[in-house]
């Protein structure tokens, strides 16, 4: 392993590959447990290397990049808000990311409460008494930032790992972008 310079496979510039060519037999799907294996080993490595706070920040930023990428590639630009939410719900369901729902909407203050049920990161985890979906936080912030064109931040307030059966997020425009 080496490379002190710039990665050639960095996300925004490169394609994610043609899976139909690359995996003609195995196909595009991966079990959730394998996804989690990567997510939690990566998280643990980051924790060990940088400490929890820094690791969380890296995961949040990674999720945010993914959110922007997901939104720009999967959701038509310029949709009305209701159409955007409908499309986002459908895309999250079709891609088996989570069951996405809106609980509250304060359009004036650009503030939303949304939930992700059966999400990839934590649904079914044992109770840990702490929220763990920091990647999803970034993912949602990235989606909203991409859709609105202004910076958003997301914070998980309830999580399967804290005893909820659904992950709840507060998503709002960043003060700096207001």
């Amino acid at each position: 392993m080496k490379n002190d310079g710039e990665r050639k496979s960095s996300l925004p510039a490169g394609s994610m590959g043609d899976i139909t060519i690359g995996r003609p037999n195995l196909g595009p799907d991966v079990p959730v447990l394998i996804y989690r294996l990567m997510q939690y080993t990566l998280r643990t490595s980051l924790d060990n290397e940088f400490g929890v706070e820094k690791a969380d920040k890296i995961l949040y930023n990674a999720g945010k990049m993914a959110g922007v990428q997901f939104c720009s590639s999967r959701i038509e630009q310029g949709l009305e808000f209701n159409d955007f939410i409908s499309t986002l719900q459908r895309e999250m369901k079709d891609n088996k990311i989570a069951i996405f729902r809106v609980e509250q909407q304060d359009s004036e203050n650009k503030c939303f409460v949304v939930t992700m049920a059966e999400d990839l990161d934590c649904s079914g985890l044992p109770i840990l008494n702490e929220t763990v979906c920091v990647y999803d936080e970034g993912f949602l912030a990235g989606i909203m930032s991409c859709y609105t064109g202004r910076d958003f931040e997301a914070r998980e307030v309830d999580c399967w790992a804290t005893g909820e059966r659904v992950c709840r997020f507060e998503v709002k425009a960043s003060d700096e972008s207001a």
Binding site: R101, E103, T115, R165, V166
Partner: peptide, 28 residues
């Protein structure tokens, strides 16, 4: 948070909040 007996009710609450929002959207 750690009242796990209440989790199904919290899930119901979440769904009702979402339904309320959806009903508002439909009304619009």
């Amino acid at each position: 948070r750690m009242n796990l007996m209440g989790s199904p009710f919290k899930e119901l609450h979440s769904k009702l909040l979402n339904l309320t929002w959806q009903a508002g959207q439909i009304a619009d």
